[in-house]
Design a protein around this nucleic acid. Structure first.
Lengths: 342, 342
DNA sequence: CTGAAAGCGCTTACAG
DNA sequence: CTGAAAGCGCTTACAG
């Protein structure tokens, strides 16, 4: 049964194998020097033979500084390209410092968010990057108060004095909406995920603000919300567009919705009739005909900047809270430049 | 300076605050019972006041079983949708068992793979899921020998007796190639990432095997390899197709390459002339005209199955190594059904 | 119902 | 050059 999980060898096992005190093994494993060449050789041999690997947990526990070399990333859904690119950006910066990243998906469920934060804190991550509805309550608030380094991705900077990195959701939504209005659209639909989530709420606010300012009214039935996969959005949008008098343009405020809308428009053969502009870019948007116009985000950069700020805090920075807002402009590919047919 | 990182309170701090022994705090924190209601209330109050959170590392260290409740996933690139979906599948299964997932990207660099495995093992993950060129050498081999649960994603099952889950790369490549040959193509190009990587090597083998069997010769210039992003592949393929006598069909053996090829074909206005079939599905493949035909993979399912096997091992299973091979068939969307023009 | 001792696997600080 | 003691933050096993 060599497959059976044996107890891992410890320094004491290595020491017993060689016939020295375990402190001597510690010296060799940590390259402290001051050990005879003969012993070094024999101990190194025993380490290989027994498959000894030092236990970081015990090591760091004793060292007291209590750094675990691990950070936690609480995100909504790691299979969403936006978040996986953000994770990649975080990982890049973490790697330079020999840090590892624990990541977990919440699916936007508050309870799951708390579970993840509790699990991360229990494992003593040195810091957290969090996509959260807000730090107002619960564990996260307690951790913030206690001084745990936390960087928020997407949060209202006016609510709390915290470090945060985000896209300019409000401004981006204004640009997208203006883009459609400038081309003559007056009947524009808005589709997003849960508007109680900060980013979606901001995009909705930007949309309403711009419509208002242009003197355009937005009927309730033109606002559609939901948290779905791209596959689920497609039939929803198909049905939404099946009414006798559909809008002349749509602003889809999230990448999966943009994909679902693109598919639905093509299915209904409305892709050259109804204008579409999305928030956050999607793959192959430039190859579809018409190309899908978007206000892109910069997920890799968001991740990198969040990680840089987090590590500055972990390393002791006590500067005032930093708030990085990344802006972007409309990418014109065709779908957002269609003119209204009425 | 409330932003300063204070030392985290320990059980002793809570105990001192209440005026009891720290063992009593331990009882309350772990809900062991046998503590007077008065003390329970005061200790719970102190826990909140001080922001005490038990240290899982210390807890598990003492408990001896040495489980850390964490598994490690060594993958190639988390920003690639294939891997982020796989990660999501792993996470799903891990969540049910209150496990957390450490993930790290290697970019296919062996050295980085070893670094990640070392870091994971140092943190005493309870098991590993690894996308690796092979367990033949180094740390991973040592961990396998020592009995650490490891499940491989994509590996040759004949080389080692290990648990593994993978797509049927060889069979999928055969299907794709036959699909093109059946439509009359004789001059087919093959594009993949590094063929020394198992999955790419298998896809190439399946391609060559099928061409051979059909009595078709494959010129060296029709085989293109490289490890690039979708953006980098696009100009490479553009140049590849710029020759006077391009192939009549292409088999792109990886998702980023399929995207790059799709873009390049459209740029050159060859998308209705040169047939294309890809390995692994891509977003919006069904909306592009012609639709992009593919042999899909099932990354969510790959992740789930790998995690299930891993947890069975962690929980002590000593069954013979398990090898799950996921098959799939060609999805016809148009690009793979174009007929040769010569 | 409450606590003092021992120990998980290590490093630190101190002896010899 | 080598080792015995103490302790990181906890739980286990044993007393009272």
């Amino acid at each position: 049964m060599s497959e059976t999980q044996r107890r891992r060898p410890t320094m004491r096992d290595v020491a017993a194998h060689v016939g020295v005190s375990f402190k001597t093994v510690s010296r060799v494993v940590n390259g402290e020097g001051g050990v005879s060449d003969d012993l070094v050789a024999r101990i190194e041999q025993a380490v290989v033979t027994l498959g000894y690997r030092p236990d970081d947990r015990a090591r760091r526990l004793r060292q007291g500084g209590s750094r675990t070399g691990t950070i936690g990333f609480v995100l909504v859904d790691v299979s969403n390209p936006f978040f996986s690119s953000t994770l990649r950006g975080i990982e890049e910066i973490a790697r330079k410092r020999d840090y590892l990243v624990l990541a977990g998906s919440t699916d936007g469920v508050r309870e799951r968010e708390d579970q993840l934060i509790e699990a991360f804190v229990g494992r003593r991550v040195d810091g957290l990057i969090v996509v959260s509805s807000g730090p107002g309550v619960g564990l996260l608030r307690a951790e913030l108060d206690r001084g745990t380094p936390v960087v928020f991705l997407d949060l209202d900077p006016t609510d709390f004095a915290v470090d945060l990195v985000r896209s300019d959701h409000f401004g981006g939504a204004i640009l997208a909406t203006e883009h459609l209005i400038a081309r003559g659209h007056r009947d524009i639909a808005f589709l997003s995920d849960d508007p109680t989530v900060f980013s979606a709420g901001q995009r909705l606010a930007g949309f309403r603000h711009t419509m208002d300012r242009a003197g355009l009214t937005v009927e309730d039935r033109r606002i559609v919300h939901g948290r779905h996969s791209a596959e689920d959005w497609q039939p929803i949008i198909r049905e939404f567009l099946a009414e006798p008098n559909p809008p002349t343009a749509m602003f889809t405020a999230q990448n999966f919705i943009t994909m679902g809308a693109t598919r639905a428009l093509h299915e209904l053969d409305l892709h050259t009739k109804i204008a579409l502009i999305g928030f956050d870019d999607i793959d192959l948007a430039d190859v579809v005909r018409p190309g899908v116009s978007v206000v892109p985000q910069h997920p890799l950069e968001l991740g990198r900047q969040a990680a840089e700020i987090l590590f500055a805090r972990i390393e002791g920075s006590t500067a005032a809270p930093l708030q990085e807002i990344l802006h972007s402009a409309v990418i014109e590919r065709g779908s957002g430049e269609l003119l209204p047919w009425r």
